[in-house]
Amino acid sequence: MGTRGPSRLVQKDPETFMPLSPAVFHILLALGDGEAHGYAIMQDVLQRSAGVVKLGPGTLYGAIGRMLEDGFIEECEERPDPEMDDARRRYYRLTQGGGDLLALETKRLAALVRSARATKVVRKMKPA
């Protein structure tokens, strides 16, 4: 799939963007398995977070705008199936930088969870 318009490369170290806001992390996560349009991202975030993270259009596209500027995501020129889809939708996907950022944040959160599990309070908790 091609991309629409030139995508700026990430010039800053991804570490400088850490920790990510929940909205940005969830959007990166939603795009982790491939390209998606705004509404699909919104629904994915809702399902993945079991209804806890609800992104409204303003928050969603504000975050998408920033991520486009920083080069973490890019817009796809072609659609997965143009006949089955609304032409007004735009699809986004992760760039290399976006994938790196997602991996980095996942690693950070995993370390945090390991650290939390090592505490007395969490050890006492029954596994869900």
Binding site: H37, G38, Y39, M42, P57, G58, L60, Y61, G62, I64, G65, D86, R88, R89, R90
Partner: peptide
């Protein structure tokens, strides 16, 4: 209410998402 630059870029998509929701 949004700045024009933002509205021009994302307004249609936001309306579409809102409509779908």
């Amino acid at each position: 209410l949004y700045p024009r630059r933002f509205r021009t870029r994302f307004g249609r998509e936001m309306s579409q998402v809102f409509r779908d929701s």
